[in-house]
Nucleic acid binder design. Sequence first.
DNA 1: GTCGAGATTATCT
DNA 2: GATAATCTCGACC
Length: 195
Amino acid sequence: MFDLLSRPATEVAPLLLGAVLRVGDVAVRLTEVEAYLGEVDPGSHAFRGPGKRNAVMYGPPGHLYTYFTYGMHTCANVVCMPEGVASGVLLRAGEVIEGAGIARERRTTSRTPFDLAQGPARLTVALDIRLEDAGSNLETGRVRLELPAAPAPFSAGPRTGVSGDGGSDEYPWRFWIPGEPSVSPYRPAVKRQRA
DNA sequence: GTCGAGATTATCT
DNA sequence: GATAATCTCGACC
């Protein structure tokens, strides 16, 4: 079943829609993902070649890739493509279908049932995914991925929040399930400026 | 309700 | 020392 994950990220991404990510007693149904094609993708962490942070992305598919961003947040990816080739799918948002009470305790700022995992960093908080989970096997590890029996309907559009791709218009590699309230609203990539 | 800027730290140059 | 695949909060309409 996980053999599917050795395909390119742009093909794997839609397959992950509707999949269930489970950690302990909390489960999330994925409603929004983003494809990253590794070294040929300027928006990818692997664009500049292998490093300590992205080493997992060069590993075998079906594993978890986590990274820190903006100092405070963790994001989770599913590694795809065969070992030696960097590629991954960023898990952007989902709907909490089990353990909502636990998720709400972790996400104290959450105000609606749909923003518990509405965003890449929120999803990792709701599921308690941390940096040390990087490289764990999604079939046997602490973080489990359950692929859907049937593919979900999906829409595609430009990626959000990615710098280095000169405006995301050229990369319509964001996929989501239409009509899901847990899908984060579209926000164009803006260059962040510090004081 | 909508918009804009600050927060905070692992990783890379 | 600069940067970053984001989130939250405070100001303003």
